[in-house]
Structure formats: structure tokens, C-alpha cells
Amino acid sequence: MLHRLAAERATGAFTRAGGTLFLREGRVVHAESPAATGLDVLLTRGCALSRKCWETALTQAARDGRVAQHLEASGRVPVGVLELCRRTALYDAAFFVLAPGGGPGRFRRKVRDQLGAPGGVTATAVEGETVRRLAFLDRIWPDARIDVLPPAPTAAGGRLHMVPNRQLRILELADGTRTATDIARALGRPAFHTLVELRRLAAGGLVAPAQHACPGHPGPDAAAGDGAPVAGSGPTVAGSGPAAPAPPGQEFVDPDVALLRRLRDALEAL
């Protein structure tokens, strides 16, 4: 459906369970997802833009839907920084919109986003990046439950001196109640980047999905019900979800070659 809309040079909102892609003349110009970190968080937490400036831009653009132009005109956000954060937010949200299990899509014609930024990217580019990200996550650690269930520290937490700073801040917030989305927003980071570090921490045996926890935010598989994994692909996340991979260090009667290869790839990715 998305490719057909792109071919028709359609303008409107393409929505699935994971969020919405906004199209203008067939190109994706903006994306929103409750599981992703929005542009407002990226700008106000990671840049010099204040929350007040962001809200002022929203108020001024309430009628014309040109938030990006108002931000540029204010001089508070350099054009390059705004474009970088805009593209980051777009791909971050699109990952959850297009990931497997998002259910059927629907399209509302002539609906426009508030951002009103020029340009956009092709539907093919957005889809290709989503596929690449799904494969990358599975190469790190092929258990997608950590993406939706609140991560909790394991007994291996004594190895914190070996954890890089970018992961340490995530680990400090992984208390078994916050989801990956909560952690990403608290740190002002893209949700996908947080998923990458959480998968690395899981591969290192430092975090695991909290038992009997319920996701606080819907992911791309929210429509599937019963807490289905959201970010994996292929046989590891098909059907009712994957079996829990054996933690590093478990003894086997016979060597599990596939697991050893995954652990090797995870260690090389650190």
C-alpha cells in the first residue's frame, strides 16, 4: 500500500498500529510513533532549544502547520541541526510503524503534519532502513522481548566497570519498570539507538526482560496482543514469540554452535 501511494504521489497520513507516516506528493516527510522519541524531545533534551521555544513554535504554527519554518526563523535552532534531528526522528518512528506485526495500514488523504518541513525521503529508503535495523538488532541479540518488556538488571551487575558510559546511563535506568521507550525519552536519545544498547547489554548478560511485566507503550506488534515481541524479524519472532535464549555462561551437554556464534557477534559489536 505504501509503495502504491508513493507511485501515485499521494499526500496524507499512512497509519498502522505502530504509528503514522506523513506523505507529501508520495515522499515521507514526517513520522510519529508512541514508541519512538519525538522531534521535540531530541531538540529540547539534546540541543539548546528550550521547551518554551518549542511550544511557541507550535502555537504560531497551529494554523499553517509550519513548525520547522518557525523554528528556523527564530534563529534558536541552526538549519543543519534541525534537519539532522528531523531525519533522526523520522527514521526512529518509521522503524516502529513499518516493523513486522503492525497490522494493516489505512490512509487518510490530504492530512498534513504540523512540522511542514520541505523535502522528504522515498518510501523505498524508509522501508530499506527499517529492514536494515531489524536485521542489525537480531545480529546483536535475537530476543526481541527486551524491546517491549521493561529491562531489569541481572546478577552480573558486578561487571559495571566494563560497561561504556553510553550503556551505563541506560543500565542505571533499567529498573524493571521503565520500558526502552521510557529510557530513551529520559535520556533524550532515539528509541532505536536505545534498543541497540539494550540488546548489547542483554547479550552481555547484564539485563533481561522483567518477569511478569507489561509494556508501558505500544510497539509495532501491539495489535498482536499478549505482549508479542516487536523489533525482531524472521523465525526468532514468528508466531507466539521466541523461546528465551540461554544466558551466556550456561553449560551444555553438546556445544551449541549457533549460540556461540551469536555471542561472538555480540562481543565484536561491543
Results as ranks from 00 to 15, higher is better:
M1H: 04
R9Q: 11
A10G: 10
T11L: 14
G12A: 09
F14T: 02
T15A: 15
R16L: 03
F22G: 02
V29G: 04
A35R: 01
A35D: 00
A36V: 01
G38R: 12
G38C: 10
L39N: 02
L43R: 12
L43F: 06
A48T: 14
L49S: 11
R51W: 07
E55R: 12
L58S: 02
L58H: 13
R63K: 07
D64T: 15
V67T: 10
V67Q: 06
A68W: 15
H70V: 08
E72R: 14
R76E: 11
P78C: 09
V79N: 07
V81Q: 13
V81K: 08
L82W: 15
R87N: 05
F95Y: 05
F96P: 00
G101Y: 05
P104R: 11
F107I: 03
D113I: 07
D113F: 13
Q114I: 15
G116M: 10
A117R: 12
A117H: 13
P118V: 09
P118R: 12
T122P: 03
A123Y: 04
A125L: 09
A125F: 00
E127T: 12
F136W: 14
R139E: 13
D143Y: 15
L149Y: 01
P150C: 00
A152F: 05
T154C: 06
L168D: 07
R169S: 09
I170D: 14
I170F: 08
L171M: 10
E172L: 08
A174C: 09
D175M: 00
D175T: 08
G176I: 08
T177V: 06
T179D: 13
A180L: 10
I183D: 13
A184W: 15
L187D: 11
G188Y: 14
P190W: 01
P190N: 11
P190Q: 09
A191W: 07
T194V: 13
L198S: 05
L198E: 01
R199S: 11
R200S: 05
A202M: 15
G205L: 10
G205A: 12
V207A: 06
A208K: 11
A208T: 13
A210Q: 06
A210S: 10
H212F: 09
H212V: 04
P215D: 12
A222R: 00
G225T: 00
A228D: 03
A228P: 01
P229K: 01
G232H: 08
P235T: 14
P235F: 05
A243P: 15
P245W: 14
A246P: 08
Q250R: 10
E251R: 15
E251M: 10
F252T: 05
F252Y: 08
D256M: 03
V257P: 04
D265T: 09
A266T: 14
E268G: 03
A269R: 12
A269Y: 09
L270Y: 12
